[in-house]
Design a protein around this nucleic acid. Structure first.
Lengths: 362, 362
DNA sequence: GTGAAAGCGCTAACAT
DNA sequence: ATGTTAGCGCTTTCAC
């Protein structure tokens, strides 16, 4: 006995919304079987051009839109990519997401965003959400997705892409980022200006992509005969607040650094803010370099010098890795570059300026 | 003849991912019918407690996760809410989205984000995407969704929620924002400081929520005997860049304003930046008030005074309106408040300071 | 190359 | 209160 499903919809709207035409309607209109329509929809080049034309015309004519749920149910693929990030309010992520969305959509996918706020429970919930929606792949842009949590994905064979380092596994891939180049440029730049006491504000180092930034800084300093002093290293969490704390820590030191490198722009902005409210001038008193190259950095006063990492490149690499996995193709290894973007938060260190200004009077 | 669908998955992963248990497995395990399982899943309180317990236990035991596609296909509801915004890179939207997501998820919904970049073609695409995924409702947080575009939603009976003003229709609702309070406070504050020439940087006024801000400014000024001069009104687009242009415009005037109110924080930050690069001091030379109260505003140097509008309230009102529509309930009318958040970008106007400083020497 | 038909895993009508 | 069963709109096998 036939059910009258459309009643529900009609009830909701008051006016009768035209019942959405299905694949059957298209088939009828084009005088072909639904199988053929399906083939055309999926570009299975085993259909005669004439039939393709007729089907296309029919689709156009009756305004047919395929039903994603039905397709997902029967094909097992949701055409959904998940993105797990820590926090949307760090401008880096929206910028990343914007690109991710654009590229994913161009490939016929939608994006499901979930933010963890670094909270283990919320992380677990995020995974549930992704699993429930049967995402075809997930880009994990936060840390803490190890061990037991990860196996939930692995068990279902969900492809995963990470930053920098992926756990072992058949469906795991990683986006390689070349931190060295940009960070070496940054450290070099400071050294050339005359800085020797360089401080570093780190982020949540559980995340490989964050730890690697510190390694790159240490490495760059070592290469020019400097060391990253433990007291000049502040462990933050990439938030504005942690930047403030970092500055407070540094200026309380007997010998504060003359320059600070931050693991991300948000902390750098925090440093600027804290400096401003203490009457410490950036860059006159302390030079500052951030990391990420977020747009708003250019609008700080003074504009923030930063090591730029292309959101677009990362987003596209991530989508691509996922897409390749789904399609059974091998994702080409990607390496995303970084480079120093000079703006106005660096200058020669305090001391050297004093020396210069002393010359005339000596 | 039985198909062996799982082969595909197995092929993908190499190792055999345990076939996902379905509702049948749960029913078998709990020794009830699938209908009962379905009832438990949907909390249809017509099931005996004992059976509920058994079903819950079975679900737990075999790690059952309902299949959303199947559920969507058969129930006609996707449990997906769409959010259409102009641009993710304006910090206001991520902050809004974060709250939207949290609340929607707590109600069992996922969020599909689409950004239009104010581009008509992309807008149309956004609607296609939403329709294709059969979202149960859409929050439209950008302008340009009028007429023909909107009817695409209306035809399908998709509930819509807007800011400030909703088109007529059975499934349309609007979040009322009380701009007056906050903006009156802002204008009042400037007036009390002594400002008379107050400039206004507007946004894309096609959007009611933007136009209303201008009205509120005009209204507030009128109430204290001032008028918003046409030459002191700059029409921007809420971007950082348009803030820069605005400042350039204002300072080129024979009599520049002594204070500027911006339609959003991003433009205000643009104004600050442009001022900084011209050696114009905020607030000494020009006082500045933004709108939105985005987090980063507090980290500007000096911290940006702004009219705050709660992202949480707006997000929750939006989700709630949509949810009520879907559930056939009547959404209670919401009114979101605004208020002035004093930080450090306002002070007495230049002239009055001069007067004071002249006193001793006269 | 094309069509007929069997499910995909649920929900909801109907029968009990 | 619980079970039985017919679809939801597709994809995909299999037969032609």
């Amino acid at each position: 006995m036939p059910r009258v499903r459309s009643t529900r919809l009609a009830d909701r709207t008051g006016s009768e919304p035209s019942a959405r035409p299905g694949i059957v309607a298209v088939a009828k209109q084009a005088k072909v079987s639904i199988a053929t329509v399906s083939r055309v929809l999926n570009n299975l080049d085993t259909v005669q051009p004439e039939l393709v034309r007729r089907v296309r015309a029919a689709i156009e004519q009756i305004g047919y839109v395929p039903d994603v749920s039905a397709r997902a149910l029967s094909s097992g693929r949701s055409h959904l990519f998940g993105v797990i990030i820590s926090n949307l309010t760090n401008p880096f992520f929206p910028e990343l997401l914007q690109n991710f969305e654009e590229y994913a959509v161009s490939l016929g996918y939608e994006v499901l965003v979930a933010s963890t706020a670094y909270d283990l429970h919320r992380m677990s919930l995020c995974i549930d959400r992704m699993l429930k929606r049967k995402v075809d792949g997930v880009a994990v842009m936060t840390f803490g997705m190890e061990g037991p949590l990860l196996t939930r994905f692995a068990d279902r064979g969900v492809p995963l892409v990470f930053m920098d380092r992926a756990p072992d596994g058949p469906n795991m891939s990683a986006i390689q980022v070349d931190y060295e180049t940009g960070i070496h440029q940054a450290v070099q730049h400071l050294a050339v200006l005359g800085h020797r006491r360089i401080g570093f504000v780190s982020g949540p180092e559980q995340h490989a992509s964050v730890a690697n930034r510190r390694f790159a800084v240490e490495d760059a300093m070592r290469k020019i005969g400097l060391v990253l002093e433990p007291e000049l290293t502040f462990s933050g969490d990439h938030s504005l607040q942690s930047g403030e704390l970092a500055l407070a820590h540094f200026v309380a030191l007997p010998k504060p650094p003359t320059a600070i490198v931050c693991s991300n722009d948000l902390s750098a902005i925090g440093v600027m803010h804290a400096a401003g409210s203490r009457g410490i001038s950036i860059p006159r008193d302390i030079s500052l370099i951030g990391f990420d190259g977020i747009e708003i950095g250019a609008y700080m006063v003074p504009p923030l010098t930063s090591v730029v990492m292309s959101r677009r490149d990362i987003a596209e690499a991530a989508v691509n890795a996922l897409w390749c996995c789904v399609e059974g193709k091998v994702a080409p290894p990607t390496r995303v570059g970084t480079h120093l973007l000079l703006r106005r938060t660096t200058t020669v260190p305090m001391g050297s300026l004093d020396d210069l200004s002393c010359l005339p009077s000596s």
